[in-house]
Every structure is written in structure tokens, then in C-alpha cells.
Write a protein that binds this DNA or RNA. Sequence first.
DNA 1: CTGTCTGCAAAGCGTTTGCATAAAA
DNA 2: TTTTATGCAAACGCTTTGCAGACAG
Lengths: 142, 142
Amino acid sequence: MNGLAVRLREKGLKVTPQRMAIYGMLCSTASHPTAEQVWGVIREQFPAVSFNTVYTTLGALERCGLIQRLHIGENAAHYDANAKPHVHFTCRGCAQVFDCEDIPEVDLRPLTDELKRGKGYSVDKIELNVYGLCGECVTLED
Amino acid sequence: MNGLAVRLREKGLKVTPQRMAIYGMLCSTASHPTAEQVWGVIREQFPAVSFNTVYTTLGALERCGLIQRLHIGENAAHYDANAKPHVHFTCRGCAQVFDCEDIPEVDLRPLTDELKRGKGYSVDKIELNVYGLCGECVTLED
DNA sequence: CTGTCTGCAAAGCGTTTGCATAAAA
DNA sequence: TTTTATGCAAACGCTTTGCAGACAG
């Protein structure tokens, strides 16, 4: 039995071929595609699938915590199968979004500690987004 | 001569009463209103001003670096007269956006250093957004 | 006078909602 | 059989664009 299907069923989601394809595609890519981009890939396998189904499925996956929706920049949302918070780098050249997990992590605990204990806030989520040019696009611009 | 008007003119922007009111309003508030909220305030003084003028004026101010446009959460953009990057806290209770400048600052230099020197990226901007409940809304929810 | 801004309207885009049909459990 | 998903279409909200008249420089 497929592990992805089990995870869907555990969350109370019905397992359909379209969902398996969408979730599977997200889990097997290192990039963070937009709903439009996910649709483009899924349509190769399911030519009849509607953009709306892809979009609402991504919403369902996010709502149950299986994936993360990234509100990066001003344009369409990006989706990330890694649901735990991490640093994202957005290139304004190629418009791709990269993870920054292999670099010295910034320690956010002083920030959350002060917000929680010092100010009495509650903290749900932290977004740390870096914008600039990736290695390839830097050389193209110089 | 008004300092705000000087700053507008320095950036090549013409000084109109509407612009002065919009920029002045943003500079004199600690909150980070949406375009809609700015419009609400400006209309008290200029009942004929259109939402579009407010919106495009905010865009012009942002384009020349006088203000910052915050892409926080999923809804309308917020505007901040403090153009230098700093931590923002968004309350999901009252939907307000607060600055986090008076708390131990997170040191982002290891992150930018590794991205620049280690990976050869260029870094334009860093956004650090925290989501949760502010002190007042925490007590209301308990 | 010239270039820009204002106000109005319409269009664009990402997202959300409603509903009949189809499929999973 | 019951519940949820799919596919289509239309609506929605925020943002952007086009244009004629008004205003700042």
C-alpha cells in the first residue's frame, strides 16, 4: 500500500487518482510550484482534470497540514510538500523558490521567546523569505 | 517648508495635496494600514479622492523607496512608512500588523553571508513575518 | 507649456463559491 | 447508501491599466 494514500486517508481525505497524482508530484519535486504549474504537470497524466480541482485539492492538502502554502511575493501562492517552517529564497530572475535548509540556520528562539514570555503573544507560524538573484541569474545580469 | 514635501520632490514626485495627505498619514501612524484603510482616513479630508488615486499613490511611494509594501498573509497588502526591513507580527484575532523592533533582534547575517559568499546569490530583501495572537486577543480566546 | 497626477471605468488575475454529476468508502 | 470529490461556470476581491481633464513645475 502506498504511503501517500495512507497519509491522505489518515487525514480523512478520500483517495482519488487526481489527489494521489497531485500530492505525489509535490512530494517528488524540490521546487515549490504554483497551482498553475502543478496543473500543467498533472494534465499530462489526466488531460481532463480541471484547474479548479487542482486548486481545491491543494487547499484541502494544506488545510489538513500535509502541505504548506507559501505567500511569497505578490503573485500566486506556491506549494511546498515540506510542511515544517523553513527559510525560502525567491529569485527575481527565474522566479523560482528554493529551500534554504543546508545553510547555517538562523536561531529564531530569542524572537519567539520574547514574543511569548515577554509580550504574552501566541505564535502560530514564522515566515522567513529572502528575495534576490540565484547563482545562475547573478551571472546573467552582472 | 514641509520635510515630507522635500522628500517627495527629491524622488522626482510632484507634490499634490492628496500625496501629502497620504504620505503624512502613513508617517504619523504606528500601524500598517491597507490601501482601503488609508483611503478611509484620507477621504475625511478629501471627500472626492478616489480609491484608485490612493492606491496608485501608494504604489508610487513604494516604487521610489519612501514606503514599504508588506505582502502579509493572503489578503490585501499593508503599507509601512518605515522602509527598512524589520520583523512584523500579524495577529489573526484583530488582523493588525505590529512592528517588532523593541525585542532582541534576530541576527540574519549568517544567513545572508552564506547566501552571498557561500552560494553566490545576491540578496535584495528579507521578510520575517510572525503570525499568531497579540496580547489582547490571547486573553479573549484563552 | 510640458509632464505628471487625478478620478473614473473597465479589465486582469488569483482565489473562492455553487451546483450537478461522478466516484470513494 | 452516504459522503466527499470532480468539473464547469460564475462571482469575488485586490490590483493594474487606459484615458480625458486637471494641476504642479
